[in-house]
Design a protein around this nucleic acid. Structure first.
Lengths: 130, 130
DNA sequence: CGGTATCCGTTGAGATACTG
DNA sequence: CAGTATCTCAACGGATACCG
């Protein structure tokens, strides 16, 4: 039913918007890291292997902007910033859990499809490439 | 439970992969267009306002490669190509229907969060920009 | 009709160095 | 500690022209 509605209004801008936000390289893994509770910037940095400081900052800002993540500066003597999921972020995470489950259940089908597709393309161009 | 598992294996590559594929500009709307049945290339082109031939081709190739869409060349006198969802593609679409529903239900919360966030940033930089 | 080839501007992402 | 600044490279997306 939601799909029919989306079709009638031609495309579904809100879902596209969401998927583009969450379809970047680090957003989902960051949200997942925050599932187990509040984390500091450097905790997230260490837990996300391969991310740079700059990209983590951008990722967190984007998530914060959409209301999925909350940033709290703890006023101590030393600089201390804590990130946590908002209620909306937790809701998003439970949506993502469905996606994760689906991706896991169907990963072999996707893998096989790719192998098959790439093999055919390989055949088509093998003479030209050689 | 799937999230816990994903956390333990550190990140969820299959879901990230899926979201990046489906997080591009045209994949979801293309899949939605194919929900109502087989479509020809130019039907999809006309139904997707703003897309170019090249991008539609790339979008369809990617969807085909992952096994979500099937391409069939109809051997008539004139060139005729039909695209349709595979079973896997239909399954993906029903997953996406959940995403579409969520995005629709929470769009105001996201919108408000953005307005608030942007207003604060505006304040912070208004003196510098003026 | 259903594509490819080419070019080109914009955005995403990483490395590195510096700072309140 | 938690960022910002700057630079660089690659990927994405669009315009246009051509082709079997």
């Amino acid at each position: 039913m939601p799909i029919k509605a989306a079709l009638e209004t031609l495309a579904c801008p809100y879902a596209s918007d969401l998927l583009r936000r969450v379809g970047d390289k680090w957003s989902v893994s960051t949200i997942i890291l925050l599932e187990s509770g509040t984390k500091r910037f450097n905790e997230l940095l260490k837990a996300s292997e391969g991310i740079s400081q700059r990209i983590l900052t951008l990722t967190l800002r984007n998530l914060e902007r959409d209301g999925f993540v909350e940033r709290a500066v703890i006023s101590n003597s030393t600089l201390h910033v804590e990130y946590s999921l908002t209620a909306l972020g937790a809701s998003l995470l439970s949506l993502m859990s469905g996606v994760i489950k689906w991706a896991d259940q169907n990963r072999d089908l996707v893998k096989d499809a790719r192998l098959k597709f790439d093999a055919i393309r390989e055949d088509r161009f093998s003479s030209a490439n050689k």
